[in-house]
Design a protein around this nucleic acid. Structure first.
Lengths: 356, 356
DNA sequence: TTGTAAGCGTTATCAT
DNA sequence: ATGATAACGCTTACAA
């Protein structure tokens, strides 16, 4: 109630706790208690206060509260800029899942893009060290580090999702990438395939290692060697997933002794790959079987419909939030946990036995 | 520097402005000035301060600052829960574009899901009235309103994106939906089509009115009547875009005097529709031409590749941010502005002349 | 140009 | 059970 509140410049900051206190005829500290610890105040008093608050349309000021208690209720999610395009198909679901979970406990979700420039890194560090956010969920293996400030230290709660970073000390929520790909590959082998093309994302990162590892394991178990699989992509990090598939199709065209089955590490890659090879006259799955990773809804509606390993995005988001909010204090205790939530192979038309 | 800062419980709140001041040998207010108005402080002093700040790894506390100046630097984007799935293909781009623009000016982006429940409405209102956020970009026509509190009043800066809500008093950034669909339809007419199927999103909303209006206008100009177009979808609001396409395909199957061209109001719908009708033995574009709205990257890789009206998401995001940040004060001045950014029709294989 | 001091709207400690 | 009061970390008149 700073200036004229109902004159014309209705630009004011709304009713304060002091206003509620006055209207209810109690002290301001009592209002604070009534709102935070309803149990520690007389029922009658509380009723008066609640009524006054409602009547005034009172909303507590979050910044004042945050400043006082030294905590914010905001969590940030750090997305590599490329992700918006790369595994983009699942990003909206990731955000929604995380946001829904956060709201349960009165928390909020802020987005942070981690691009390859110092500006975005500095920005994220400011968010963290400036107390704006209380913790972070990261979908990136690289963490901002500028001017000696580093997100990795600072006892700042961080949970990694999708990528396993438990070795680096961050509790991680991942799916069983290796096993899922192993099973998908095993299924292809069972169908009769013996020569494979693996389309990689950024080479050497967790997903690549695990997923490619899964392929090799399946080959092993079937008595085949890694000779049976060729790789494409991988060297091209940070780009549009669709482009990787296009590139892979062109690699495929040059291959002698052609693979009869393709394992793509994201749906995007598979979709553009399929599109390109179909244009060269090949039929899927007759000439080439395809399976990919992510479980984007669109896979069901491709021609042919695409087999895909569906990531349990919702559960992963929920788990990440639960761990993050739970872990507020500890960190540094034991080794970081690694929570695995199983993917599900969805079999569709794109997988079948090889021709001959 | 509350307790023991390098003993073991490294859990403290980091260096304060007071620490910087002490180290630099100046008053705290001088530090504040040096950081905010570098011009209003002696170059030498400023150098000392900068050095001290850097040495300590100082980051200003955003909540304290926000509380003091009565403003937050956070903007929220309000997404209808359904959007994550519906026109989901463009949501990541929207978020990225808005976030990048915001960061330019030191602002941050918070996500708010507007679901159909009171909890999410209340949550958003708390964000606004509690001072957490400074303004909002809405992708929804419905605004939260609970307990007498309403986002629509409150002099709270709001900009609408995608939907034109200038009549309701919100500056809006939209694309030329009507015109774009009119042109696409005209192109279909030019190709020889005379009977159309229009696949609607939520019936009666801005997009439906404009886009359907565009179809009818094109028919008009060609001397055709609205009899030439049948509608599908529309009654099913808020659901997975893919489902609407599936439903439309089943509607299509039952139609007598079949349309030869389809105008879908989102890529999702078009994709699932195409998939379904292809399974009934129809060929696209031989038996049926298809064009849709959004410009999702995946359209290029469908079979056949899909013609689509590409929304200028990046520019819309930038414009929305510019308007929102510019409009901090005014509002209520004149009528709300309506900023139109043109879409681009991308012609691909899915559009061709009718068979006979 | 720089320093002093009064808040911003809460919460939490201490009395009462 | 309730009330006065001192922070929380910063910005901004106002003084020097």
């Amino acid at each position: 109630m700073r200036k004229n509140q109902d004159m014309l410049g209705e630009e004011q900051s709304g009713p304060l706790m002091a206003d509620v206190a006055r209207l209810a005829g109690v002290a301001i500290s009592t209002v604070s208690r009534a709102l935070a610890n309803p149990g520690r105040v007389n029922a009658k008093t509380r009723a008066k206060i609640d009524a006054a608050a409602k009547q005034l349309g009172y909303t507590p000021n979050a910044m004042a509260r945050g400043l006082r208690i030294g905590k914010s209720n905001i969590i940030m999610i750090i997305l590599p800029g490329s992700l918006h395009y790369g595994a983009s198909q699942i990003i909206p679901q990731v955000l929604q899942s995380i946001n829904r979970s956060l709201i349960q406990g009165g928390h909020n979700l802020m987005i942070a893009n981690l691009d390859r420039d110092e500006v975005s890194e500095r920005h994220i560090l400011d968010l963290a060290f400036g107390g704006t956010v209380r913790g972070a969920i990261i979908l990136s293996s690289k963490l901002p580090e500028v001017d000696g400030r580093s997100l990795a230290n600072a006892g700042f709660p961080i949970v990694s999702m999708l990528l396993d970073m438990s070795d680096a000390g961050f509790p991680s929520v991942v799916t069983n990438d290796r096993e899922a790909v192993r099973d998908a590959t095993a299924e292809l082998i069972r169908l009769g395939h013996r020569r494979f093309l693996y389309i990689a994302g950024p080479e050497g990162n967790y997903h690549d290692v695990e997923r490619y590892g899964g392929v090799v394991e399946a080959l092993d178990q079937a008595g085949l060697t890694a000779e049976a699989v060729r790789r494409s992509g991988g060297n091209l990090d940070y780009q549009h997933g669709f482009e990787i598939g296009v590139q892979a199709a062109s690699d495929f065209a040059r291959l002698t002794d052609k693979p009869t089955a393709v394992i793509a590490t994201s749906d995007d890659m598979a979709i553009s790959f399929v599109s390109c090879v179909q244009r060269t006259g090949l039929s899927i799955p007759e000439d080439l079987s395809v399976v990919s990773f992510d479980g984007s809804p669109v896979c069901e509606f491709c021609s042919p419909s695409l087999s895909t390993i569906e990531q349990p995005v919702d559960e992963m988001g929920q788990a990440a939030v639960a761990i993050l909010l739970g872990a507020t204090g500890q960190m540094e205790n034991g080794p970081a946990t690694r929570t695995v939530i199983r993917s599900k192979l969805i079999l569709r038309e794109s997988m079948a036995g090889p021709k001959s």
